[in-house]
């Protein structure tokens, strides 16, 4: 399996302090990679760094050639303003193809077809003309994933994706992500608090508290002290 992102001894941070210190990790093709940690532990900084919005202040970050070409699909945390945004599902999904277009002012046939394909894959094609703000939380999340898939086909970065979803929608969401990961071979990197659901799915766990607390498989993580504390009574 080839490596998509390799970090060795990377620091990420802002002007005068580093939020992430001495991080060594690797995201490979087909990985289901989970980042956990308390609030303010540097998770969001790490996401920004991986997306290329923040350059590392130290160490080396290598992003695979193919990933640099197509970019990384990104599912940001939802903002309050989006909840009542007047936009059709099609408009939102199509905006994911923006980076493929370069400096052309309008979308081509090909990009429109791609948006259609993405909506079909996520089972939201019949919602195409519906208004984003009228959808349920789970449906909105599918729309945003379709948009991310338009932007990139190899890897998705999800930032706290299940916040604000009801339990049923959360289960549906994990099933969908698992499907994308296993059947379509898309590498997943997810930042989440929801440990109970994640341990069974991921193949790599990174526990961050500024520096790396744990990095390895979920099975090992369950045996460490940090893991047991973080999992609460989840697995005892």
């Amino acid at each position: 399996m080839s490596s998509l992102i390799t970090c060795s001894h990377v620091d990420f941070g802002y002007e005068n302090h580093d939020a992430v210190i001495d991080l060594t990790m690797e995201v490979e093709e087909g990985d289901y990679f989970c980042v956990v940690g308390a609030n303010g532990s540097g998770k969001s900084t790490l996401v920004k760094g991986l997306l290329g919005l923040l350059s590392p202040t130290g160490g080396s970050l290598v992003v695979a050639e193919e990933l640099r070409k197509t970019g990384i699909g990104y599912l940001p945390q939802q903002t309050a303003a989006q909840k009542d945004f007047p936009a059709s599902v099609r408009e939102v999904v199509l905006s994911g193809a923006l980076n493929r277009r370069g400096n052309r002012p309008f979308y081509s046939r090909e990009e429109k077809d791609m948006a259609k394909q993405a909506m079909k894959r996520l089972g939201i094609l019949e919602l195409e003309k519906r208004c984003y703000r009228e959808l349920s939380g789970g449906q909105q999340q599918r729309v945003l994933i379709a948009r991310a898939l338009c932007a990139a086909g190899k890897m998705l970065i999800l930032d706290e994706p299940v916040t604000g979803l009801d339990p049923q929608a959360i289960q549906d969401f994990y099933r969908l992500i698992r499907h994308l990961n296993r059947e379509e071979g898309i590498a997943i990197l997810m930042v989440s608090h929801d440990m109970a659901n994640i341990v069974g799915q991921a193949n790599k766990i990174l526990h961050l508290h500024q520096s790396v607390v744990f990095y390895g498989s979920p099975e090992e993580y369950g045996r460490t002290k940090a893991g047991q504390e973080f999992l609460g009574g989840g697995i005892v």
Binding site: L51, L53, P76, F85, S95, P105
Partner: peptide, 16 residues
């Protein structure tokens, strides 16, 4: 389309 992207979701627009 860029105005739409920036208005709808700054973080995503920035990432793309």
């Amino acid at each position: 389309d860029r105005v739409f992207a920036v208005t709808f979701d700054e973080s995503f627009a920035r990432a793309t």
